[in-house]
């Protein structure tokens, strides 16, 4: 069965680029535009990998990671942060909140596929 990935980003462009790249590689991709919507959707239907932006309205990426790690069902879900280089401090915060790994925007599609495969197994 195809692995399920959720991309969380307030930028539709970024979500669609991630979704497009991963669908092409055979993943099943869902989208959410902020942390709160992502959390609600994930609690209803978990996925195999979450890729999240950090800077988002309503619930930001770090808060989303904390919330997911606090939920027993999602403790072991790999979470990748999609960050810009200038967000080093945020990235460290995300790491300590429980993020599995990170990708840098703008992302290299091949690298994205590679990393998602690596953390999803």
């Amino acid at each position: 069965m195809a692995k399920r990935v959720m991309t969380v980003d307030d930028s539709r462009t970024m979500r669609e680029m991630v979704a497009f790249t991963l669908r092409k590689a055979g993943f099943e991709v869902s989208e959410a535009e902020d942390g709160r919507k992502a959390l609600a959707a994930l609690q209803a239907a978990p996925v195999d990998v979450v890729i999240t932006d950090l800077n988002m309205p309503n619930m930001d990426g770090v808060a989303l990671i904390r919330a997911l790690r606090a939920d027993a069902r999602m403790r072991a879900v790999p979470i990748l942060m999609l960050t810009t280089e200038s967000e080093a401090a945020k990235k460290a915060e995300g790491r300590s909140a429980g993020a599995t790994g990170w990708l840098v925007k703008p992302f290299d599609p091949e690298k994205l596929i590679d990393v998602v495969k690596r953390v999803a197994g």
Binding site: A76, I79, R95, G101, R118, G121
Partner: peptide
């Protein structure tokens, strides 16, 4: 290591 959902088995696979 496990707290961030990193899995050694997957590293071996990679």
């Amino acid at each position: 290591l496990f707290r961030n959902a990193n899995e050694p088995l997957l590293l071996v696979r990679a």
